[in-house]
């Protein structure tokens, strides 16, 4: 598919926002789903880059897809050089999005760095379900130079920032800030948590979800070859006893070992959103 670029915007530093026009008959993605974009005219970089849906907005005569990314490698740098009016080779949406409970009155977003990208669309959806929903956004970055989206985040929820070096907001990690806010009753453990960020952060959040007993969905990343379940690159280990299978998360790409003690899941097909307790973090990050 070719989508035309409506806008490409540098948000400061290596952070960019790309707006694409979704042609009339193409599917409208859900928060948490992703697309793959060819970020080259040749063989380097070779593979399509998976990028999550940042926001879906209604334009004049079509829906618009916003993608927020950090230009860190050859592919995303190539992407950052594309201009308004150019076409992009894009496929998707792929994967399963977040599962929202329309009845909740409070939700918590925990983001690490560019992990804020897929969570923004989620805030929009939460607001669509319940305009009075109370959204707390906890965003952790290494230092203040990595903050680029505060105003926009402040528009969709109450934003709390944590920096590893204390250069802005809370001095510590997003997880530490969340723990503190739970202990001080500033967020309820009954509020569902939605998270995206570095694996180490999400792994820590997994431990916290058990300590404080809160529900948490995470959007995960693993190296992908294809994005649609063919190459089996993005397999991650799950805990056999904790697997959630339902109509929104059909988990069609599970591969069980013969003895049933091990199970791998494809992030592109079964994910990228998982219940945090499903993931075998120890085995994955060895």
């Amino acid at each position: 598919m070719e989508y035309s670029i409506l806008d490409t915007q540098c948000l400061g530093g290596p952070y960019y926002k790309l707006t694409l026009k979704i042609p009339p008959n193409d599917p409208i993605p859900s928060p948490g789903q992703f697309y793959t974009i060819r970020c080259s005219d040749g063989t380097s970089p070779l593979l399509r880059r998976p990028l999550s849906v940042h926001r879906i907005s209604e334009g004049k005569d079509s829906f618009e897809l916003e993608i927020l990314y950090q230009a860190v490698g050859k592919g995303t740098q190539w992407l950052s050089g594309r201009k308004r009016g150019e076409g992009l080779d894009i496929i998707g949406p792929f994967g399963n999005g977040f599962i929202l409970d329309p009845a909740v009155s409070e939700s918590v977003i925990v983001a690490g760095g560019i992990g804020i990208a897929p969570l923004y669309a989620l805030c929009d959806d939460l607001r669509t379900y319940n305009k009075d929903v109370n959204i707390t956004i906890i965003w952790g970055v290494r230092n203040r130079t990595e903050l680029f989206y505060e105003t926009q985040c402040g528009e969709v929820g109450s934003l709390f920032i944590a920096t590893d070096d204390g250069s802005h907001g809370f001095h510590g990690t997003a997880n530490e800030l969340l723990a503190r806010m739970i202990k001080k009753n500033r967020v309820s453990v009954h509020a569902p948590v939605y998270a995206c960020g570095p694996t180490a952060m999400l792994r820590g959040l997994g431990v916290m979800s058990e300590t404080f007993d809160f529900a948490c969905q995470v959007s995960l990343e693993e190296h992908m070859g294809c994005g649609f379940g063919a190459c089996l690159s993005c397999a991650i280990p799950l805990k056999p006893e904790s697997i959630q299978k339902n109509s929104r998360w059909p988990k069609q790409a599970l591969q069980w070992s013969e003895d049933g003690n091990e199970v791998y899941s494809l992030v592109c097909k079964d994910g990228p959103v998982y219940d945090i307790r499903e993931v075998n973090w120890d085995e994955w990050s060895k």
Binding site: S44, L46, H223, G225, C234, V263, K286
Partner: peptide, 19 residues
């Protein structure tokens, strides 16, 4: 049935990938 290799299963290299 086989569960296959551990993560990480692939990485891109110059004009190719290791899998």
């Amino acid at each position: 049935p086989r569960t296959g290799s551990f993560p990480r299963r692939s990485t891109e290299t110059a004009s190719g990938m290791l899998g």
